[in-house]
Design a protein around this nucleic acid. Structure first.
Length: 239
DNA sequence: TTGATTTGACCTTG
DNA sequence: CAAGGTCAAATCAA
């Protein structure tokens, strides 16, 4: 996060320097390194760390969820602050095994890509009821869990097939508190809900001098940046 | 008619 | 083999 914040500052400095056509010297090597690190992170080189240590990253985020990348320090606290019923979130162990399906057995009817969730990156949230987390989910299963009073519901991203989004989640009532729903998120959203993000502004602070930025509605700049902080920063780094 | 949900069967993993 | 995760046909709903 420090690198990301630093990168944001450096990007601003770079923009200013470019405007002034001034020669950057002195500690420019360190600055450049930090900026490159930031770009690497934003482009996924260290995305695992981001995902593993962050709540509210795309899949885990509610519609007005917290910031991960671009929001800076102020946004970091917005997750809990914006929720009266502070959601309990925790990350679990994560390995690269998720990436490769190591099954060697034969598949029947095209099935077989089953992966135990134990080794995949996940985080949980406890909510007092059903909430809109800002993503389109489709239920694909329900299962009675051993030693659990309540069944577990399985959801996948609506755009799983359209856009290959691998995000899934499980929702289950907490045993001791039936009114509380425990949602476990797996994977992060790689999809784009074009209807919801059509007015997304990637980085309004440097809008005037950023030829790579895409903006469809500048008027909602602040609002959307708060609602989709991760997408905003992620997208801007990817364009 | 089309998309979402239900639910039992199927499949993998520990 | 038990348990959890996913598939897909049947069903529901807009």
């Amino acid at each position: 996060m420090e690198e990301l914040i630093q990168g944001r500052e450096l990007a601003s400095q770079l923009s200013t320097a470019y405007d002034n056509r001034s020669v950057v010297n002195g500690d420019d090597e360190g600055s450049a390194e930090g900026f490159v690190n930031t770009l690497l992170i934003l482009n996924g080189k260290e995305s695992d760390q981001i995902q593993g240590n962050s709540s509210g990253v795309s899949g885990g985020g509610v519609s007005d969820g917290g910031s991960v990348v671009s929001g800076g320090g102020a946004d970091l606290s917005s997750w809990d602050a914006n929720h009266d019923h502070a959601a309990a979130i925790k990350s679990e162990d994560y390995t690269e095994e998720e990436i490769s399906c190591k099954s060697t057995s034969t598949f029947k009817d095209g099935r077989g890509s089953y992966k135990r969730r134990k080794t995949t990156h996940s985080w949980t949230r406890d909510t007092p009821g059903l909430i809109d987390d800002g993503h389109a989910w489709r239920k694909y299963g329900q299962k009675v869990i051993h030693n659990a009073k309540h069944p577990r519901n399985y959801f996948r991203c609506t755009y799983k097939f359209d856009q290959g989004c691998k995000a899934t989640k499980h929702v289950q009532q907490v045993q001791d508190h039936p009114s509380v729903l425990r949602t476990t998120y797996y994977g992060t959203h790689t999809c784009r809900d074009y209807f919801k993000t059509s007015d997304l502004v990637l980085d309004c602070t440097n809008l005037r001098d950023s030829s790579i930025l895409i903006s469809f509605d500048n008027a909602n700049c602040l609002t959307n940046k708060q609602e989709h902080p991760f997408f905003a920063s992620f997208a801007s780094s990817s364009v």
